[in-house]
């Protein structure tokens, strides 16, 4: 019933026409992204008019480095959501890898080994999530809610709930936290590289296209020969892997392994960013561009509220409200049926 019958165009003998160039440009950016960009500019203007320090290069770098960790998580959250899933465990996974990498670093005094173990932990977490969802046939929200709690517990257990190790003197970790290439901090480079790679994968490879297909219509995807299980597990592994990168960056920034601080709330922030960026909760629709712009917006908003001296508790409230608003807008746009109406 959501279908509109299009009046076929019998007057056009050639059924395939190239769209207008302007239209194509707009299609590339996307209407939703355009409105996000406008909102971002407006937000910057409002905050900047209240406090001109906002536009200082140092402040902009601050925004960039703060959003980078949320940003890479939001990028993989986007992939999982495109597939029709959700990963609530990303924050806990980042916390666990943060602790694990710092502890291994301390006992082995090798940054490389610490990072490697951290990444392996992330992959393991993703594999676990994927297996529980696929073979245990558990709803993705429940499965990752369970690992969300369990991994947090595990991180606190192995660390006794305290910060672990001290990485602040190791050159590798210092480079990750404070280094810069071409004047741009490493943290921002990581976000750029992760976002770009995932974007290219989604847009140009058959893997990306199959992710969209699976999220859009799993039955159709399966009947077209797509191995759904492999895709589901693969996407959760990707999410775990990137959560591990986030955890390692967290260790580098704070100089020690943090079981909860800094990683708590990443799940909410990443889901909010993806939803705000136009990723449909039922999957199959959205993209990395929107998510990245939304991440920037959230970062600017947070930074703005801070430099305008707004109580930080308000920031949580604002974030929650934003998630609901973003989803409401999406449901309206998607012409979804009201709850309980028969098909």
């Amino acid at each position: 019933m959501t279908t509109t019958e299009s009046p076929a165009a019998p007057s056009r003998p050639d059924p395939v026409l190239r769209p207008h160039p302007l239209r194509r440009t707009l299609d590339v950016i996307g209407v939703q992204n355009l409105s996000l960009i406008i909102a971002l500019i407006a937000l910057c203007a409002v905050i900047g008019s209240q406090n001109t320090n906002f536009f200082l290069v140092s402040n902009i770098k601050t925004i960039g480095t703060t959003v980078s960790i949320v940003g890479i998580i939001a990028v993989v959250q986007t992939v999982v959501m495109l597939l029709g899933g959700l990963d609530i465990s990303v924050g806990s996974a980042a916390g666990l890898t943060s602790v694990a990498s710092a502890m291994v670093f301390t006992s082995a005094s090798s940054a490389a080994l610490g990072i490697l173990v951290g990444l392996l932990v992330g992959i393991g977490v993703g594999l676990l999530n994927g297996m529980v969802i696929v073979y245990g046939r558990v709803n993705a929200v429940i499965a990752t809610l369970a690992t969300y709690a369990a991994l947090r517990g595990l991180a606190n257990l192995i660390s006794n709930g305290r910060a672990q190790g001290y990485t602040g003197t190791d050159s590798t970790f210092i480079f990750l936290a404070q280094g810069s290439v071409l004047g741009i901090p490493i943290l921002i480079w990581v976000l750029i590289v992760v976002a770009l790679l995932v974007h290219l994968m989604l847009r140009y490879t058959d893997i990306g296209r199959n992710i969209y297909a699976t999220g859009g219509n799993p039955t159709a995807a399966r009947l077209a020969g797509i191995n759904l299980n492999r895709y589901v597990i693969g996407c959760y592994i990707l999410a775990g892997f990137v959560a591990a990168i986030a955890g390692i960056l967290l260790t580098a920034r704070t100089g020690s392994g943090q079981p909860t601080s800094g990683s708590q709330g990443l799940e909410l922030q990443s889901i909010t960013a993806a939803a705000l960026g136009g990723v449909a909760l039922q999957g199959g629709k959205g993209g990395i561009t929107g998510t990245v712009i939304a991440v920037l917006m959230l970062g600017v908003l947070q930074n703005g509220l801070t430099i305008l001296n707004v109580n930080s508790f308000w920031q949580d409230i604002a974030q929650g409200a934003l998630l609901v608003v973003a989803v409401v807008i999406q449901q309206r746009r998607g012409k979804l049926r009201a709850y309980g109406l028969p098909r």
Binding site: D206, A213, G216, N217, K285
Partner: peptide, 30 residues
């Protein structure tokens, strides 16, 4: 058709090539 075969929110092109994407790809790039 709608529930089991089509990606309704995707293009005609996406729908037609769904089952042959891997054939159309070189090094996974379509």
């Amino acid at each position: 058709r709608k529930a089991q075969a089509l990606l309704l929110r995707r293009s005609v092109r996406d729908n037609i090539t769904l089952a042959v994407l891997s054939r159309l790809a070189r090094l996974r790039v379509v």
